[in-house]
């Protein structure tokens, strides 16, 4: 009798522990793509965003991949829509879109970062190296980009999209200061259907970015 009771209780204990310890709620199990995405925006808190009037945007999107050091410039349907959507958002904020030859105040660079660009911490300006937009594109050969220290962010290990806005008006030591940046991470950031909502979210959380 006692022996039976002992076995019953031991079995109960085992069953209880196994069943209850595995009943942790897994946050990733029921997560939609929309819920998986995060939108990070940074800005130069010393920048006076109303002092800029015009902007120009790149005519294609730089694609950084692990497999090649130098990025390719791409112009897929996604890229076309991204350029159009970011341009529209900038115009809505009161900035005038001009050709890059017209000496715009702000440069908008677009970058897609490919899957598993691993083991690179996002140090300030890590992507300023080979493959990123050459300042020569903007008519300033020999110039450089400068990411202020507020750019210390997450590690890169999946598909991402970055929008960088640079001040072309006030270069420091022939470097252009990044005044605003948006980074999209998560599932579906390279999906064309999500562009508008991601652009909207990024601008919505940056109310200071306006003429």
């Amino acid at each position: 009798m006692k022996r039976t009771l002992f076995f019953i209780s031991a079995a109960t204990a085992l069953v209880a522990m196994v069943s209850f310890s595995s009943c942790r709620k897994d946050p990733l199990k029921d997560m939609t793509n929309e819920e998986s995405r995060i939108y990070i925006t940074n800005h130069d808190s010393t920048a006076n965003f109303s002092s800029y009037s015009t902007f120009s945007i790149v005519d294609s999107v730089a694609v950084l991949t692990r497999t090649s050091d130098s990025a390719k410039k791409a112009l897929t349907d996604y890229d076309k829509k991204l350029i159009a959507s970011v341009s529209a958002a900038m115009q809505q904020r009161g900035y005038t879109l001009v050709a890059k030859s017209a000496k715009p105040d702000l440069a908008v660079n677009l970058t897609r970062i490919d899957n598993s660009y691993t083991n690179i911490s996002w140090n300030p300006g890590w992507w300023g190296g080979g493959g990123y937009w050459d300042p020569g594109y903007w008519g300033y050969p020999g110039g450089g980009w400068y990411w202020p220290s507020y750019y210390t962010v997450y590690q890169v290990n999946e598909k991402q999209v970055a929008i960088d806005v640079f001040d072309l008006k006030n270069p420091k030591n022939s470097k252009f200061i990044a005044v605003w940046n948006a980074l999209w991470r998560g599932s579906g950031v390279w999906s064309i259907d999500n562009i508008d909502s991601m652009v909207k979210a990024s601008f919505d959380q940056s109310p200071y970015l306006k003429k």
Partner: peptide
């Protein structure tokens, strides 16, 4: 064993790393 869990709808969290819009679990 005890498991605590809450998911919050999308919100913008000011952070030292910038403003982060996220659904937090």
């Amino acid at each position: 064993f005890q498991d605590f869990y809450q998911r919050l709808p999308r919100a913008v969290y000011p952070d030292k790393q910038g403003d982060v819009s996220a659904v937090q679990s």
